[in-house]
Amino acid sequence: MSPLLTVEDLRVTFPTRQGPSEVVRGVSFTLGRERLGIVGESGSGKSQTGRAILGLTPPPGRATAKILDFDGIDLRAARPATWRSLRGARMSMVMQDPKFSLNPVMTVGRQIVEAVKFGATGTRAEARDRALAMLEAVQIRDPERVFRAYPHELSGGMGQRAMIAMMLVTEPDLLIADEPTSALDVTVQVEVLRILDRLVAERGMGLIFISHDLRLVSSFCDRVLVMYAGRVVEELKASELKQAQHSYTRGLMNCLPQIEGGQRPLPTLERDAAWAK
């Protein structure tokens, strides 16, 4: 089976006063219908990688790649019309904070219905039914109330679920989730991840899960890319994270405090200039 997404030598550059600054420097990977994690600290280029795939590199930044192929479509040469037919309908993105990614002056229901209409034909009643069904699928107990609610009337966990519902109602083939649960409490986080997990399993969606949380990613994803200073320094199976080879990955693992008690003082990360080469 050919991969859903192929990325080769992706570079994202921003012009600065000191000359162009490359924040993503030659990232390559393929994605099938699986859960791929991208882990890194702030400034590692993980979010810019996700955005570049959707063609959402904020200007004046520029994204280039040798190959950027989504299900046979060359995204590098995609025209605005092509992007419009892809984004939302076949590939979508969940951002970190529902407070900033939902429209504050539109009810949640109207926003989801808008997404449904965008992707498909059908009557208004059908769109409404699909939106309600989707809200139910993301474990919202009272979908009718949430449908009528404005974003500020929802808690963080509810807002994030509504956001996920909106992104998934068009049944995309690829979902890019950029820190989808970082703003949520741990117990809510687990519920949201279970929803994503089920959708990958049931609908055969490809998921790119971007996070700074190595422990979470390793327990949730199938495969993990570890990014440092714009490069992928290591790619490994999530289950084999404990056997990581690269000293950055190992350092990142070791510096996390453990509930079971660990070293004191905590080992800190000795950054090696060679990692960024």
């Binding site: 600290e41 190595l214 510096c255 004191r264 003082p265």
Partner: peptide, 13 residues
């Protein structure tokens, strides 16, 4: 970030 968190926790300790 996790690596910075470790440094700050050590400092507080």
């Amino acid at each position: 970030d996790a690596s910075i968190q470790a440094e700050v926790l050590n400092l507080l300790d």
